[in-house]
Design a protein around this nucleic acid. Structure first.
Length: 229
DNA sequence: GGCCAGGACACCA
DNA sequence: TGGTGTCATGGC
């Protein structure tokens, strides 16, 4: 696959996000009260509905364990039970513990010290933590560290390919590269764009021109929009 | 009962 | 680098 972005990508993205913003309004992402809650949510929501991740977060809050030290103080089985509603509960318990251990061992338990690293180094360090992949790392950088790393998830590829801006098989790594080249590095803008893509991605798509409520219908390949090759 | 949901990792070619 | 199997709960 060529690493050259589709022609006019930046110019074509603007009306897409404008239409989404007009239709859905401000998204106020990420729904968290503090950095560790945001990060725990990012780990718990992996391949899971947010409602399930929220249940696990509620359990951790009730157990007063929603912090680096709080996670470290729990025994493994108790932690697994608390996060069970989010699915993959053995893995997710291990991921929370892996992250908390890293902050303890490398930053003296100070999450702010990790999050204040420059973006490139922060991303490399996050990716070195077991359980943190590209999407989770970018979400943490964007929503917890408030630095401009575009979050590309399954919805991003699906939504952009549905309107013909990219091919459906384009790798997330490449889509992120193109979007970050095409959109000025503004963390607030990136945060809103990602939230809007997820919001729109969750909306049902009939894959026919019969979706008058779709804000992207005019540019959608199912609504007569031009498919960019 | 089947499918899907705001992925990541191990393993392999 | 890219493809596949695995991990698991809850809503529809």
């Amino acid at each position: 696959m060529s690493e050259v972005p589709p022609a006019g990508l930046g110019r074509r993205l603007e009306p897409v996000f404008d239409a989404l913003a007009r239709h859905y309004g401000p998204q106020h992402w990420w729904p968290a009260r503090h950095s560790f809650e945001m990060i725990a949510g990012a780990l718990l929501v992996q391949n899971t509905a947010w409602t399930n991740a929220q249940r696990a977060l509620d359990n951790l809050t009730a157990a007063r364990a929603l912090s680096v030290q709080g996670i470290l103080d729990l025994d493994e089985l108790t932690l697994q039970e608390l996060v069970r509603p989010s699915g993959y509960y053995r893995q997710k318990a291990a991921k929370l513990r892996s992250f908390a251990r890293h902050v303890r061992d490398e930053h003296g338990g100070e999450l702010a010290a990790l999050l204040s690293l420059p973006m490139g180094g922060l991303r490399r360090e996050l990716l070195s933590i077991w359980g943190v992949g590209a999407e989770t790392a970018d979400a943490i950088i964007l929503y917890a560290a408030q630095q401009p790393s575009f979050v590309v998830d399954g919805y991003t590829v699906r939504v952009l390919s549905r309107i013909g801006l990219i091919e459906g098989r384009t790798s997330r790594r490449l889509v992120r590269k193109w979007l970050m080249e095409a959109i000025a590095p503004d963390p607030r803008r990136y945060a809103e764009y990602h939230a809007l893509v997820v919001r729109h991605g969750k909306a049902p798509c009939r894959k026919t021109p019969d979706c008058p409520e779709c804000p992207l219908l005019a540019m959608c390949r199912y609504g007569g929009g031009v498919v960019l090759r």
